[in-house]
Design a protein around this nucleic acid. Structure first.
Lengths: 242, 242
DNA sequence: TAGTGGTCTAGACCACTCG
DNA sequence: GAGTGGTCTAGACCACTAA
């Protein structure tokens, strides 16, 4: 029966109880939690309801369930960090963009293939500058397959993030986004755009977007000013639902 | 009834069917999928079983369910990228470590506080070099609260990753790991250790580990050779379960 | 063989949304 | 008020694990 005072589902309470026991150290890494039947008796609820609570804990990565054996406490997966590109770097409100260049590079198979677009000849190239106030923060270069009948809208170029631009302009549905984070020294041209010195370190973020058959849909590269952009990642989101 | 030929649960098949419809573009961003009752009739299964399938899709981020309205298709969350520290940078087998320094810095409150350890005076500092073959890849510096009765074992220092070292040495259970990725120029000392030139760009990865009350448990900094270390992140893991 | 988790049913009542 | 998803029940049979 649902707890009428709080309107919090029973299975949720059960999950929180066990979560607390793990965080307090009462239940340690590798420990077995009570069986589903035992928990059902403890809380006077049916087994399906117990399973809902256990599913929450498993989803959060706090336990691992093995058929025929039981549910074991696991150390929270602190090795899996999440980067949320929507809330990264600089607060959204202070950022604006300056479009530097938009090009349709037609019938240049070499160029397309070099980017990874196999069997394509025409590529859209977009270059823009990201600014915070008047300070240049990053140079962004994006490349997309050219897709007939799917025009790129200016508003999208200005405000949408890269996966969204790709989704809007491609027939294929984007299903994977890989990111490579590396470091490089600024070229003279880059240094000028970023209002920094040539040869200074810069953060380089490369995004590659694929459809379900691993067909490349888009490539984006960000070259970031070393003092004005910082990537953050956290393990928290996985546990946050509980 | 379970499909006896394949042993694949019905709810899983249902989820895969809808996933395919999303990936093929048959169901688009914002579309409503059939109601739970309708799906139950289509597949001749009970509503609870339908809900299991829908839960899978929601977990994968393919749909979003709103009480009283229905389940809507959402674009896969390509903006949330996962870094798996276990499989990052360089293949595990080729890596080994050289311990440079282990120090117990006693009764130095200033030092501890500067790192963020409030109300503590003693800190353990570990410095080691990560190598791939004979090539130095990164300089790692780690700082932990000193915890009585929880000795640091040499094997842990050599082989365990940072969250694990913290978990083993602290009373408090680590529950969050934040990471900051930035860029810096190598100092003369760093350049010498990494066998690189002074002033060259380097990737700087800072990890901060907290317990559930946001108490700081550990800080780690990695300074990486620009050509020998690269961070990878991907959106895939979130969808991988389906 | 006994105990565990995994799947599934056929109901029930509830809270929420919308016309 | 009709339709939706959210919670929950009291069973059932299955596959897997371990003694």
């Amino acid at each position: 029966m649902r707890n009428r005072e709080t309107l919090i589902p029973v299975y949720y309470r059960l999950a929180e109880d066990i979560k607390k026991q793990i965080e307090s150290g009462e239940l340690k890494d590798g420990d077995l939690i009570p069986t589903e039947v035992q928990l059902g008796e403890q809380y006077s609820i049916s087994r399906m309801t117990v399973r809902q609570g256990i599913a929450l804990l498993a989803e959060a990565g706090l336990i691992e369930t093995i058929k025929g054996k039981g549910s074991f406490v696991t150390r929270p997966r602190l090795n899996q960090l999440v980067i949320d590109l929507k809330h990264v770097g600089v607060p959204r409100e202070q950022v604006h963009y300056k479009l530097l260049d938009v090009n349709l590079i037609r019938n240049n198979t070499d160029f397309a293939n070099k980017l990874g677009f196999t069997g394509e000849a025409s590529v859209i190239a977009i270059k823009r500058l990201m600014l915070k106030g008047n300070l240049p923060v990053a140079i962004e270069e994006k490349f997309l397959r050219y897709q007939k009948g799917k025009p790129l809208l200016e508003t999208q170029l200005e405000y949408a993030d890269f996966p969204e631009v790709v989704a809007k302009h491609q027939e294929s549905v984007p299903v994977r986004n890989d990111m490579l984070i590396s470091v490089a020294a600024l070229s003279a041209a880059q240094a000028k755009l970023l209002d920094a010195g040539e040869g200074l370190p810069a953060l380089v973020i490369k995004q590659v977007i694929y459809s379900k058959d691993d067909k490349l849909l888009g490539v984006a590269t960000m070259v970031c000013h070393k003092d004005r952009y910082e990537l953050k990642a956290t393990s928290y989101p996985l546990l946050g639902r509980l």
